[in-house]
């Protein structure tokens, strides 16, 4: 399972990376915004994308839309982990095809639940 973590704050990437390690996912890679993350996704054969929303350069919602618009990437599961908490934003992310939405600050338990739920669905389909 190869996972890309996109967040502009290295500390947040590190926290997510550590939590993923606890869940048994050790093959994690990092990018600091959508414009560096997207080329990695296109060439890196990633199985899962975890992205923040608010980032300089390309935001998470734009990255999500770009992923869904790209034929090769369109089926990659995407989990949004963000401080953005407006209902309209969550609805927009859902409409853009997000697979899960975790609001910061989050607990290890919440992140674990969402990731497991996403994989259950991916496995079922």
């Amino acid at each position: 399972m190869k996972i890309l973590i996109v967040d502009d704050f290295s500390t947040m990437r590190r926290i997510i990376k550590n939590l993923l390690k606890d869940l048994g996912f050790t093959n994690t890679h990092e990018a600091d915004d959508g414009s560096t993350g997207l080329p990695m996704l296109k060439t890196g054969d990633f199985d899962f994308l975890i992205t923040d929303w608010n980032m300089p350069g390309m935001t998470g919602i734009d990255l999500l839309r770009a992923v869904r618009a790209d034929e090769a990437l369109s089926h990659t599961p995407v989990l949004m982990v963000t401080a953005e908490a407006k209902r309209e934003q969550i609805v927009a992310a859902a409409q853009a095809g997000v697979n899960g939405y975790v609001v910061k600050p989050f607990t290890a338990q919440a992140l674990k639940e969402k990731i497991e739920k996403i994989f259950e669905r991916v496995d079922a389909s």
Binding site: N54, A83, E84, A85, K86, T107, A110
Partner: peptide, 20 residues
């Protein structure tokens, strides 16, 4: 849809969620 960052007055607002 413009990113706003952490909501500091979530209790006083109707347009935001306050929990997971």
């Amino acid at each position: 849809l413009l990113a706003e960052g952490p909501i500091v007055d979530a209790e006083e607002r109707e347009d935001v969620v306050t929990s997971q």
